[in-house]
């Protein structure tokens, strides 16, 4: 699971009002190099909730993202390459996503988060 996906996921448990962001518990993180596309990064930059993204990247061991950003950072190639790396090249292979409100853990195995709910959570 990439941080791009993490940034799009919320806790879906019934009654939870503030299910975003899910806290990452990382047991195993892998890196897979992919080609960079600046246009995609610029498009996604506006859609990313930055704090959740920075916290997520730290939980996965990557600490080179700035705490605060505005759109001027997109001019910097150095920023783009870090953003690209954190967004698309880091994968949470084993671990969990934790609901910020209830503490319920959604397991991530072989890179795949399991968001299925128990009957009493739907």
């Amino acid at each position: 699971m990439r941080l791009l996906t993490h940034n799009m996921l919320s806790s879906n448990i019934k009654g939870v009002t503030n299910g975003f962001p899910l806290r990452i518990e990382a047991e195993k993180v892998v890196e897979k190099t992919v080609e960079m596309n600046p246009d995609f990064l610029k498009k996604m930059f506006d859609k990313i909730q930055w704090k959740a993204f920075v916290d997520g990247s730290r939980a996965m061991g990557f600490t080179e993202l700035p705490e605060e950003v505005d759109s001027s950072v997109l001019e910097s190639d150095e920023f783009l390459s870090r953003f690209h790396h954190a967004l698309l090249e880091l994968h949470l292979e084993e671990g969990a996503l934790v609901c910020p409100e209830t503490g319920r853990r959604f397991p991530v195995n072989k890179g795949i988060p399991n968001m299925l709910l128990h009957e009493d959570e739907v």
Binding site: T5, N7, M8, L9, S10, N12, F20, I112, M115, L116
Partner: peptide
């Protein structure tokens, strides 16, 4: 993602 349709993705 293992989920029912797009549960968990709908908000963001």
């Amino acid at each position: 993602i293992i989920t029912d349709i797009a549960s968990g993705l709908e908000k963001r």
